[in-house]
């Protein structure tokens, strides 16, 4: 294809000096990605669990509060949430706090914003999982789901193992090129929108498969009844009977969510946080080697995420018995 595959750049020293190489710069970004993933995951677990319990609580008000949270944070795109946390929240808060936030070093500020945005966004999904987990409590149900042949197709796993933003860029930049080359289309035919749509549909359907599966694994009031029949109040039943089981049942799906956040961290790209993805892309943009750099980034995400997915599957096998 006559493309300039300049992999050697990785070993070259950074132009700004300090003796670091570009590969070191990328690795530094990868560390930041990991820190972001872990902090956001913790926050999401905490927030999601609290609201999930609210959703499952037999009180309309509690349910409504939980539902509002889920609806707000799940229905607004993550990227919009980043912008809101970053640009809007400091302005809306009392001036003193706002000024204090602005006085923090930009990189810390951006990091905190990213954790908040990711945490609350993912918390909304975890909230629904907690609720479903409480309402459900599987057993024979798991087997029933398996009997229905509900395993995720490998294709979905592959799609899920690559961050959305990258998927979009791939479809926007690479696929049209390939299609043009293969089919000899003229540059005036715009197929980028179609490819972006395909990317979105593929990713969303992968999530859907998970959610539907979680929904089927369930529906047993029996454990609630058994706890109640022993004289346990709602708090006791929740604390000693329901939550221990719900958490165990949801452990794999929580891990899956962690993988999702790992991918979503790539969205911090748009607010100039130098994470793994952005650093990789920067090199590509500067040298005009965006394509190989995107491929490299994709491969790294894929390796890490499919490794984690394997771990999740192993966990699922263990908890299924």
């Amino acid at each position: 294809m006559g493309y300039n595959w300049n992999w050697g750049v990785l070993l070259q020293p950074v132009a700004t000096g300090e003796g670091a190489t570009y590969i070191g710069w990328i690795l530094h970004g990868l560390m930041l990605t990991a820190a972001l993933t872990f902090s956001a995951w913790l926050l999401a677990l905490l927030v999601g669990t609290c609201f999930g319990i609210l959703r499952a609580w037999p009180s309309r008000l509690c349910d409504a509060i939980g539902a509002t949270y889920v609806s707000l944070f799940r229905n607004v795109p993550l990227i919009v949430q980043f912008f809101i946390w970053f640009f809007v929240v400091p302005e809306v808060l009392p001036t003193a706090i706002g000024d204090w936030i602005k006085s923090i070093t930009p990189s810390t500020q951006v990091f905190v914003v990213s954790v908040l945005a990711l945490g609350f966004f993912t918390g909304a999904r975890i909230c629904e999982q907690v609720r479903a987990g409480i309402a459900a409590l599987p057993d024979g149900q798991t087997q029933a789901a398996h009997a229905l042949g509900l395993t995720l197709p490998q294709a979905f796993l592959l799609v899920r193992a690559v961050p959305l933003v990258m998927l979009l860029l791939w479809f926007f930049l690479i696929v049209p090129q390939i299609l043009r080359t293969v089919f000899g289309l003229s540059p005036s035919v715009d197929i980028r929108l179609v490819s972006a749509m395909v990317a979105f549909v593929l990713l969303e359907s992968a999530f859907f498969a998970e959610i539907i599966r979680a929904g089927i694994l369930g529906l047993s009031k029996g454990q609630f009844h058994a706890a109640a029949a022993l004289g346990m109040g709602r708090y006791q039943a929740m604390r000693y009977i329901i939550l221990p089981q719900a958490f165990r049942a949801m452990l794999p799906i929580m891990m899956t969510q962690c993988i999702v956040i790992f991918q979503d961290t790539s969205l911090v790209y748009v607010i100039s946080l130098g994470d793994f993805f952005r650093n990789t892309v920067s090199i590509g943009e500067r040298d005009g080697t965006l394509v190989p750099m995107l491929l490299l980034a994709g491969a790294v995400y894929w390796v890490i995420c499919s490794g984690l997915s394997g771990l999740v599957r192993a966990l699922q096998k263990r908890t299924a018995t």
Partner: peptide
């Protein structure tokens, strides 16, 4: 109070409902 009442009334279920954890 229902919990008070229930602790004095034992119940056995069709599907046992033992706590699996």
């Amino acid at each position: 109070r229902l919990p008070e009442l229930r602790r004095r009334i034992g119940m056995v279920f069709q599907h046992f409902e033992l706590f699996p954890h």
